[in-house]
Design a protein around this nucleic acid. Structure first.
Lengths: 231, 231
DNA sequence: ATTCATTTTGATTAAATTTTAAGAATAATA
DNA sequence: TATTATTCTTAAAATTTAATCAAAATGAAT
């Protein structure tokens, strides 16, 4: 159930958008001014933001710029709403890091379509995030979703792979179970942190089939796990 | 500092791209028509080209073809910008084997991500050529929509063929259903991503009639599909 | 207008992955 | 050494995801 933040000070517009998005199964939160918007983003972690340009207080463009400069919010897609339809606006909005742009008056159906398209596109494009990297004899390639050790390929499941990626990106650093859960499972995951243990075990089982390899994933008792530093 | 050549005749779009690429530390040169583009390529030796399809004078497709036929420029990755219209798309995807492909309207962030991804693997991927190509014992012929394995020809339908083409052009790389839908069906396709599954099934059914062939199209559960790497 | 091939949808089944849970093993500490 | 806390191991339950099948919709060709 993706969560959408709508930032607009015109109440009827907000309600129009809310009605249409909720009908499609989205969760909608809304706010009418820029500063409040930034707070909501931090507290509610929306999956997408619909942002009007003319706002009381902080205006839409600066909100957008601020969102883009913060590593925590940089990844959240922003669709800009604007009354002015000049090209200059569109370009400016996109330069500020918006992902799409809808001019008022807009058709609700179109807006919903764009929201969906954007969420879908943002969702999964393996590889656009990061390229292949290696640690000692082991090569990790997100684009191919594979781990290769001495020429032998090992297939991991999604959770296993993500886990390994996070650990291997910073060898030596210890990651707590809680941190890993939040990164991989999401901040609102409500399950047991022992789940991590099981996945770590699966990774070990699969990778230790490779001969003459020291243990890659180390346990740090009472703290968490880390990827072996010197390989 | 990689140097990017942007070829597009819409000034605002060029500026949008320039702004975003320069912010990321790329050097950007730009031109608005096809003939000038070819000269710039020769004189400036860009590391990557972003090419709009609709250009005055020499159109994008011919520019691309000329670049591909010249040994000096064959290796330069080309990312194509397209407004997604049917026939252009077909030629683009099949005959030209574009390195990557972004549909308008696009998000600058996404474009930058693709540029980075493409530069990262520039070395490995040999510039794709038009016309038929082969992977192990299988020959793929975009002109005929056909696949030949050990002398036996198999006819595929258009969707099946496009799918196979995209997968087979980069064996080993995983493509998400979302990406495939966007490339083949268009960014505004509103259907179910399970559609891809059915076409994959059809491809498998047809091709596995060929004897003694390992599975060509591999499922990567939770992620997408990929073409078998070592054949 | 009918036929045929292709594409898409939906329901069902099968399979892989993830999660839970509980006892065994291990390390840390008194 | 005994105690305790923590992690490992295992298996099975629950969930998610993909394969399969059939039928409906679409579209092109006759």
């Amino acid at each position: 159930m993706p969560r959408i933040l709508v930032v607009d000070d015109e109440e009827p517009i907000v309600e129009l958008i809310r009605f249409n998005l909720e009908r499609e199964g989205f969760e909608v939160i809304a706010t009418g001014d820029g500063d409040a918007a930034l707070k909501k983003v931090a507290s509610e972690q929306p999956d997408l933001i619909i942002l009007d340009l003319m706002l009381p207080g902080q205006d839409g463009l600066s909100v957008c710029r601020i969102l883009r400069n913060d590593p925590n919010t940089r990844g959240i897609p922003v669709i800009i709403l604007s009354a002015r339809s000049e090209e200059i606006d569109r370009v400016l909005g996109l330069e500020m890091g918006a992902d799409d742009y809808v001019t008022k008056p807009f058709s609700p159906r179109e807006l919903v379509a764009r929201v969906k398209a954007r969420l879908r596109r943002e969702a999964k494009t393996p590889g656009s995030l990061s390229g292949q990297f290696s640690r000692g004899p082991i090569i990790i390639d997100p684009e191919r979703f594979s781990v290769t050790i001495k020429g032998v390929k090992y297939d991991l499941t999604p959770k296993e792979f993500e886990l390994l990626c996070i650990l291997a990106r910073e060898p030596g650093r210890v990651f707590s179970r809680e941190y890993l859960l939040e990164r991989i499972w999401g901040y609102d995951y409500m399950g047991d942190s022992r789940t991590v243990d099981v996945h770590i075990r699966h990774i070990r089982q699969k990778l230790e089939q490779a001969p003459e390899l020291p243990q890659l994933v180390e346990t740090v008792r009472g703290v968490g796990y880390r990827f072996r530093e010197n390989l």
